[in-house]
C-alpha cells in the first residue's frame, strides 16, 4: 500500500493458467502454455498482485515482491483467501507492544471492541437511510444498546440484533430476484450473499495490508476473538467499512443490472460468480476504493483505500496514548 498520496497499482490475474515472471524491471504475465504475453507492466507501479486461479509465480518475482513489500494474494474462485505473501511486520514495534497491552487489559479491550461495533452500526444506519431503506430507524435502538453495553456479551448481543435488522432492511433494497431472507455464509446460499462474501474477503485483505503498513499485527483483535490463522484485527477494522464499501458495491452492481442471475453458476450446489463476471465485479470494487471523499477527522479528501490506512494510523495513535479513544470512520 502506497505511503502518502497516489494510487496503488493492483494487478488482478483471472487467467487460470497464467505464468507470472520478472523480466528486467517488469512484471510479465503470460499464458502458461505458449508464449502469449497477456500483460507487461513496470514493477515500480505494482503494489499488489491478486491471483484468482492457479497462476505460477517465479522465484525471481517472489524475491522482488518480498524485498519491496509487494503483496501477493491467492484467492479461491469463491473468493476465499488461501495463501499470500504480505509484508513482514514494520519497524513500528512500539505500536504492536501497545496493541498487545490493550488486548490484555479487559476494560481497554472492551472499549475498543465497542468502538468498532458503534462504527459498524452507525455507518450501517446511515447507509440504509441514504438508500431509503425501510426500518433504518430501528437500528437507533441497537446503537443505544451497544453504547450502554457493560460487557462483551451485551455488546455482541447488540451487534447481533443490529446485523439482523440491517440485513433485513438491506435485502429489501435489492432487485426482487436477488432478495434474501437472511445473511448466509460458508457457503452463501443465494447470489446476493455470495457477492457479499466476495466483497468482504477483498475488504478484509485491504484492512490487513493497511494494518501491516501502520505497524500493527492484523491477527490480534479486540472484538473478534483471537484464533489460529484468523486476522481478527483486520476483521475488527473492516466493521466500520462493511456497508460503505462492500455492501454499496454489491447493491449498485445488482440494482444497475450490471450483474444478473446469469452471472452465477449453481453447479456446486450453491451460487458462485462465474469467472467471466469477475472483471465486472473487480472493476466496481476498485472503482469504489479509489473514490475520494472527505475524511471527517483529518479534513482531507482521500481515496477510500487511503482512508483504511488513515484509520489504522488513528488506531495506532490511540494505542500509543495520543488519542483518548479510537474514532471509527464516520460516513455522513
Amino acid at each position: 500500500m502506497a505511503e502518502g498520496g497516489g494510487g496503488v497499482g493492483v494487478v488482478y490475474v483471472l487467467e487460470n493458467e497464467a505464468y507470472l515472471s520478472k523480466e528486467g524491471g517488469t512484471l510479465k504475465v503470460s499464458r502458461r502454455a505458449g508464449r502469449e504475453v497477456l500483460l507487461q507492466k513496470p514493477l515500480i507501479a505494482v503494489e499488489e498482485i491478486v491471483i484468482l486461479g492457479n497462476a505460477v509465480v517465479t522465484p525471481a518475482l517472489l524475491k522482488h515482491c518480498a524485498q519491496e513489500g509487494v503483496g501477493i494474494h491467492y484467492l479461491s474462485p469463491t473468493g476465499t483467501y488461501y495463501a499470500g505473501l504480505t509484508r513482514t511486520p514494520s519497524k513500528n514495534a512500539p505500536a504492536r507492544v501497545a496493541q498487545f497491552k490493550a488486548y490484555l487489559e479487559p476494560t481497554w479491550k472492551l472499549a475498543l471492541a465497542q468502538r468498532f461495533v458503534l462504527g459498524k452500526i452507525r455507518n450501517g444506519l446511515v447507509f440504509l437511510r441514504r438508500n431509503g431503506a425501510e426500518g433504518w430507524e430501528r437500528l437507533k435502538e441497537a446503537l443505544l444498546e451497544a453504547e450502554r453495553a457493560q460487557d462483551e456479551e451485551a455488546l455482541r448481543g447488540a451487534e447481533g440484533r443490529a446485523a439482523d435488522l440491517y440485513f433485513r432492511a438491506f435485502a429489501e433494497l435489492l432487485p426482487e430476484e436477488f432478495a434474501f431472507g437472511e445473511r448466509s455464509r460458508r457457503p452463501p446460499r443465494d447470489p446476493a450473499n455470495s457477492l457479499l462474501s466476495l466483497a468482504y474477503t477483498l475488504l478484509a485483505k485491504e484492512c490487513e495490508s493497511a494494518l501491516l503498513v501502520a505497524g500493527l499485527d492484523p491477527y490480534v483483535g479486540y472484538l473478534h476473538e483471537v484464533r489460529y490463522g484468523r486476522p481478527s484485527l483486520a476483521l475488527d477494522l473492516m466493521e466500520e467499512f462493511r456497508s460503505v464499501l462492500a455492501d454499496s458495491v454489491v447493491l449498485s452492481l445488482l440494482n444497475n443490472r450490471r450483474v444478473t442471475l446469469e452471472d452465477f453458476d449453481d453447479s456446486e450446489g450453491f451460487p458462485r460468480l462465474r469467472k467471466e463476471a469477475w472483471p465486472k465485479f473487480l472493476r466496481a470494487w476498485e472503482g469504489r476504493l479509489n473514490e475520494r471523499i472527505q475524511h471527517p477527522l483529518l479534513g482531507k479528501r482521500l481515496a477510500y483505500r487511503e482512508i483504511l490506512l488513515a484509520q489504522a494510523r488513528i488506531l495506532v495513535k490511540h494505542l500509543l496514548g495520543e488519542l483518548p479513544r479510537y474514532e471509527p470512520f464516520a460516513v455522513r
Partner: peptide, 9 residues
C-alpha cells in the same frame, strides 16, 4: 497508461 490503474488479465 496511468500506472496506478488496476489491470485485469
Amino acid at each position: 497508461k496511468r500506472l496506478e490503474d488496476p489491470d485485469f488479465v
